[in-house]
Every structure is written in C-alpha cells, then in structure tokens.
C-alpha cells in the first residue's frame, strides 16, 4: 500500500517537474534569455596585488595600515563612516596611548552641551567610534544624490575577495568601452554615475575618490600614487573588517599542530587496541 501510494506520488512529482522542464526548455528555445550588461562586462577583482596579511602566515604591514588610515581620514571619511571601529583600536596600528588620544581628539563626535543639553559635537575620546559624517541616513541620501555611502567597517568582508575588490574598485574607473556603448546603451553611466567594471551593476554613484598622485601626503615618504593609496586603504579596511585576522592565523598553527600530534597518537592507540582483536583470532 505504502509502496503503491509512493510510486504514484513519485510519478506525480516527476510528471509535474518534467512538464515544467519542457515548458522551460520551449521558452528557452523560442525566446533565448537576453544577455545582460553585467554578465558581459562585470569583472572579478584583480589578483595582481599581494597583501602582507594574505596566506597562511600573513601578518599586518603596520606602515601600510597607517598610510591606509591616512587615506581613509583625508579622503573616504568625508562620506563614509566606520562605526564598528573605535579610536582606541588605533593602538593596533602601532600608535601610542598619547597618540591615540590626540588622534581621537582631532575628530568631532556627537555630544551634548553640558549646560543646555542641546545636541552639539565634542572632541573624540579613545572609547568613541569613528563618527558618521552625516547626522542620519536621510541627510546622507540628500547629500549624495540619493545614494547612501555605506559604512566601511566591514566592507572587505561583505564582498567576495574584499581586499582585492576595494583595490580594484578604486583603480577600476574607466570610460565605458565602445562595445558596451554599442550593445548596451542603457548601461552607460547616467547623470551622476560613473562606469566601473568591478562594481556589480557597472554604474557607481561614487565619483573616483583617488585621482591624483600625492593627493595624500604620506608621513613615511612612500610615493602616494593612486595605485599605492588604493592598496593602502584596502589593507586598512581589511584590518577594520577583521582586526583579529592575524591573531586568528597565529592561533591556528599551534592548534592544528597539537591536533595533528594528538591524532597521530590516536591512530597508534587505535592500532594497538585493535591488534588485540586480530591477535586473539590468529
């Protein structure tokens, strides 16, 4: 009985799904799905840069993180917040306690007037998070042609191959190709948009933020080419997204080493236990 019902139900589902398949196949044959501009022109992130934190024994390049921080501070922070990161975290980038305090105090964060209770701003404290440049999302949208600049704290984890993605996006602005213009004229950047093949839909509301060599003056004398600045800020944003990245890998090795040792022991112990069974049989 169960088997009979089972066979009927099975044939039922099979019939319906195959019917769906035939309908789909017919549609696909008669009206092939239109190619989309994203499909044809979107590029995956560039693989030609190597970051020090990559690989199984990756480590932070402190000088690079400091440079990247400067790029964020002088360029990106005009529009993007970093709300998961507190000034105190800058100690990870090699700044002393006094430097962190001074750095924090150079930023204005939201506060209240101690006498009147009115909203105002005050110098940051190490425990404050990086402030948003806009009081709220409506203000952010209004100032940016309705495109809200996202928080950057987790950007490199929120995209596939995030570090390379940020680097590629910043160095990827270009004129749309003639082929794109011909095949997908509707995918050309509209007013206020900028073509960038590394962006999911090819049209980005953010104008190229890093455009000229020397836009940021590096304290360590590194030449601030657009490529260099892009790499540095990508590295910095990798740190903001996962400050424990290097510690994680450093913890991983001893744990795996111990487990390997214990597993080998377990293997021999298992063999020795089972040898008893085999021996009794012989």
């Amino acid at each position: 009985m169960i088997r009979l019902v089972g066979i009927l139900v099975g044939l039922g589902f099979t019939f319906v799904v195959l019917l769906t398949f035939l309908v789909g196949a017919y549609t696909a044959a008669t009206e092939p799905a239109a190619e989309t501009a994203e499909h044809a022109f979107h590029l995956t992130p560039k693989e030609d840069v190597h970051f020090s934190f990559e690989g199984p024994v990756g480590h932070w390049d402190i000088a690079q993180l400091q440079r990247g921080y400067k790029v964020y501070k002088e360029v990106c922070s005009a529009c993007h917040s970093l709300k998961q990161v507190a000034f105190r975290n800058l100690a990870d980038l090699g700044y002393s306690e006094a430097q962190v305090k001074a750095e924090a105090a150079a930023w204005r964060v939201p506060g209240i007037d101690p006498n009147t209770g009115e909203a105002t701003t005050r110098p940051g404290l190490p425990t404050d998070a990086f402030p948003s440049p806009y009081p709220n999302s409506v203000a952010a949208a209004a100032a940016n042609n309705n495109a809200i600049p996202p928080d950057l704290s987790l950007m490199t984890k929120a995209r596939h191959e995030g570090s390379h993605y940020v680097y590629s996006l910043l160095t990827g602005y270009q004129e749309p190709s003639a082929e794109l213009a011909e095949r997908f004229p509707e995918s050309l950047p509209g007013p206020g948009l900028h073509h960038n093949p590394y962006f999911a839909n090819l049209n980005l509301a953010m104008a190229p933020p890093l455009t000229t060599e020397g836009q940021v003056t590096y304290d360590d004398g590194t030449v601030a080419t657009v490529d260099q600045m892009s790499q540095d800020v990508a590295a910095f944003l990798t740190w903001t997204a996962e400050p424990k990245l290097v510690k994680r890998k450093q913890t991983g090795w001893p744990v795996l080493g111990f487990l390997l040792f214990a597993t080998i022991l377990a293997w021999f112990a298992k063999k020795s236990v089972w040898a008893n069974a085999k021996r009794r049989e012989d």
Binding site: V255, W267, W274
Partner: peptide, 25 residues
C-alpha cells in the same frame, strides 16, 4: 570500549583537524 572508543577517538582527531583548519584559516 576500548575498540570503538579508540577508533572514534582517531576519527574525532581527523574531524577536528579539518574543522579547525576552516575555523582558523
């Protein structure tokens, strides 16, 4: 015990190796 506890102990070791490789890397 001890036959399958030993065998499961070894299996657990292999499992943990792969699992922690993912957790950490």
């Amino acid at each position: 015990h001890p036959y399958y506890t030993a065998k499961d102990g070894f299996g657990l070791g292999v499992f943990l190796l792969i699992y922690f490789a993912f957790v950490f890397f």
